[in-house]
Amino acid sequence: MADATSPRRAGELIARLDLTNLGDDCREADVAALCERAETPFGPVAAICIWPDFVAFARRELSGRIKVATVVNFPLGGADVDATLAETRKAVSDGADEIDLVVAYDRVATDPGFVEAQVRTIKAACGPARLKTILETGRLYDEATIRAACRAALAGGADFLKTSTGKVEVNATPASATILLEEIAKAGGTVGFKPAGGIRTFEDADGYMRLAETICGLDYPTPERFRLGASGVLADLLAVAGGTERPGGKAGY
């Protein structure tokens, strides 16, 4: 529950938010509205996350304080590396600061080496952009497979491990987040972490940041290493930060 320290914490969470619109009906006007929302009264969010078609537009709209993230191989995580390379190169050329790649998660159980090679190939095409790898943990089903996905992505050079696309039945959960953070800690604690999907309230967001602090250390979840993938949670964070009436946790991804 929110308490006297919550407004400060809500402000910290806003600064770590990847404000997202990956709706199938997203249009340029929606991206313009997202860019406007991203500059909040309590400071800017960390990034907006949008479809590749809107990267160049968003780059022009934003002040430069807010990063532009986009998705590739999304949402199904196929195995066509050449197509994903083309998507990545175009996004980087258009001005993307961060690439959120859905790995070929269906291959993890039988061929984790494919995923490692896929990540390494896309990472090489990112240039200055950072690579977040979406593992789709809700489709990996067991701990051993989730850990294998983490290790493949880390071995391939991922800059972030991200739980989910937000497009399946089970997205971020504390259990899956714990596994990703444990693997990040084992690898030295420098790779970033991004839970995504199902983050609806201040308490949800705060819970993931506390988990990151517990597993990887209090100094770990900086905005460069910890992100929250969500859309509607911003309204609740703004209410807590400003001490105003909360909207009731009705947000979605």
Results as ranks from 00 to 15, higher is better:
residue 170 V to F: 11
residue 170 V to S: 11
residue 170 V to D: 03
residue 170 V to E: 09
residue 171 N to V: 07
residue 171 N to Q: 14
residue 171 N to A: 14
residue 171 N to R: 11
residue 171 N to G: 05
residue 172 A to M: 07
residue 172 A to K: 00
residue 172 A to C: 08
residue 172 A to W: 08
residue 172 A to G: 04
residue 173 T to D: 10
residue 173 T to A: 11
residue 173 T to W: 05
residue 174 P to K: 11
residue 174 P to W: 03
residue 174 P to V: 02
residue 174 P to A: 04
residue 174 P to I: 01
residue 175 A to Q: 13
residue 176 S to G: 10
residue 177 A to W: 02
residue 177 A to E: 09
residue 178 T to K: 15
residue 178 T to C: 11
residue 179 I to E: 04
residue 179 I to Y: 08
residue 180 L to A: 03
residue 180 L to G: 06
residue 180 L to D: 03
residue 181 L to M: 15
residue 181 L to T: 03
residue 183 E to Q: 08
residue 183 E to Y: 05
residue 184 I to V: 15
residue 184 I to R: 06
residue 184 I to D: 00
residue 184 I to S: 00
residue 184 I to H: 00
residue 184 I to K: 00
residue 184 I to E: 01
residue 185 A to E: 12
residue 185 A to R: 15
residue 185 A to W: 00
residue 186 K to P: 00
residue 186 K to W: 05
residue 186 K to H: 09
residue 186 K to L: 14
residue 187 A to G: 04
residue 188 G to F: 07
residue 188 G to P: 12
residue 188 G to K: 05
residue 189 G to V: 10
residue 190 T to P: 02
residue 190 T to K: 15
residue 190 T to V: 14
residue 190 T to R: 14
residue 191 V to C: 10
residue 191 V to W: 12
residue 191 V to Y: 09
residue 192 G to H: 12
residue 192 G to I: 08
residue 192 G to T: 09
residue 192 G to K: 13
residue 192 G to W: 13
residue 193 F to C: 03
residue 193 F to E: 04
residue 194 K to E: 01
residue 195 P to A: 04
residue 195 P to K: 01
residue 196 A to Y: 05
residue 196 A to C: 15
residue 197 G to F: 13
residue 197 G to M: 13
residue 197 G to S: 10
residue 197 G to E: 06
residue 198 G to P: 05
residue 198 G to W: 12
residue 198 G to S: 08
residue 198 G to Y: 13
residue 198 G to F: 05
residue 199 I to Y: 08
residue 199 I to F: 02
residue 199 I to P: 08
residue 200 R to I: 02
residue 200 R to Y: 00
residue 201 T to W: 08
residue 202 F to K: 07
residue 202 F to H: 08
residue 203 E to H: 09
residue 203 E to A: 15
residue 203 E to W: 06
residue 203 E to T: 14
residue 203 E to P: 01
residue 203 E to S: 14
residue 204 D to L: 10
residue 205 A to W: 13
residue 205 A to E: 05
residue 206 D to C: 10
residue 206 D to W: 14
residue 207 G to A: 15
residue 208 Y to A: 01
residue 208 Y to V: 09
residue 208 Y to P: 00
residue 210 R to F: 07
residue 211 L to V: 11
residue 211 L to Y: 12
residue 211 L to F: 07
residue 212 A to R: 02
residue 212 A to W: 05
residue 212 A to V: 06
residue 212 A to S: 10
residue 213 E to A: 13
residue 213 E to G: 00
residue 214 T to M: 10
residue 214 T to C: 02
residue 214 T to V: 09
residue 215 I to Y: 06
residue 215 I to T: 09
residue 215 I to A: 00
residue 215 I to H: 01
residue 217 G to T: 11
residue 217 G to I: 14
residue 218 L to D: 15
residue 218 L to W: 05
residue 219 D to A: 15
residue 219 D to I: 12
residue 220 Y to G: 00
residue 220 Y to V: 06
residue 220 Y to S: 03
residue 221 P to Y: 08
residue 221 P to S: 06
residue 221 P to V: 12
residue 221 P to W: 09
residue 222 T to K: 07
residue 222 T to P: 13
residue 222 T to L: 00
residue 223 P to L: 04
residue 224 E to H: 14
residue 225 R to C: 05
residue 225 R to V: 06
residue 225 R to W: 07
residue 225 R to Y: 04
residue 225 R to K: 15
residue 226 F to R: 07
residue 226 F to D: 03
residue 226 F to A: 06
residue 227 R to F: 11
residue 227 R to W: 14
residue 227 R to I: 12
